Measured scan of single mutants.
Amino acid sequence: RPRTAFTQNQIEVLENVFRVNCYPGIDIREDLAQKLNLEEDRIQIWFQNRRAKLKR
């Protein structure tokens, strides 16, 4: 699968959610997927990668 290119707006929304909860449940991820026009699994991976970035 090709790399997902997130828009600046999508990143802002994801970062705002991350600040509140870095482990969002499936319900939050599915809601975000619908709002941001992305697949839920892409959102899940984004949070996984963002948590890894935080640990660095």
Rank of each mutant, 00 (worst) to 15 (best):
R3C: 05
K35A: 09
D27I: 05
N21Y: 04
D27V: 07
I28S: 05
L54A: 07
N49L: 09
R1A: 15
L38E: 04
D31Q: 11
Q10I: 06
K35V: 02
T4A: 09
F6H: 01
P24Q: 07
I43W: 01
E15H: 05
P24G: 03
V13M: 15
D31T: 04
L32E: 01
I28K: 01
N9V: 12
Q8W: 03
L14N: 05
Q10K: 01
T7M: 07
P2N: 15
R50Q: 14
Q34M: 12
D27T: 10
V17R: 01
Q10L: 02
Q48E: 10
E12I: 03
R3V: 14
F18G: 01
T4Y: 09
E40N: 03
A5T: 15
I43L: 04
K53P: 06
I45Y: 12
A5P: 14
F47V: 01
N21T: 09
L14Y: 02
W46Y: 15
Y23H: 08
W46V: 00
G25N: 08
L14T: 05
Q48T: 15
W46Q: 00
R50G: 01
N37M: 03
Q48D: 08
E30L: 13
E30C: 11
E15M: 08
C22V: 06
L36Y: 05
I26L: 14
D31Y: 09
N9Q: 06
T4L: 10
A5I: 14
Q8P: 10
Q48G: 05
D41A: 13
F47Q: 06
C22H: 15
D41P: 11
Y23I: 02
V13Y: 02
R29K: 02
L38R: 01
E39T: 12
Y23E: 12
K53A: 09
A52H: 11
F18E: 01
K55V: 03
A52L: 05
R19V: 09
R50H: 08
A52V: 06
E40P: 15
L38G: 00
E30Y: 04
N16V: 02
T4C: 15
T4D: 08
R42L: 09
A5S: 15
I45W: 15
R42Y: 12
Q10R: 03
Q8S: 12
W46A: 02
Y23Q: 08
L14P: 02
N16H: 02
V17L: 07
R29F: 08
I45K: 14
I28T: 09
F6D: 03
A33Q: 15
L54V: 10
A5E: 15
A33G: 08
N49G: 04
K35M: 06
E39W: 02
Q44A: 13
N21A: 00
L38Y: 02
K55P: 11
A33V: 06
C22F: 05
R1M: 12
V20F: 15
D31L: 06
F47K: 06
N49I: 05
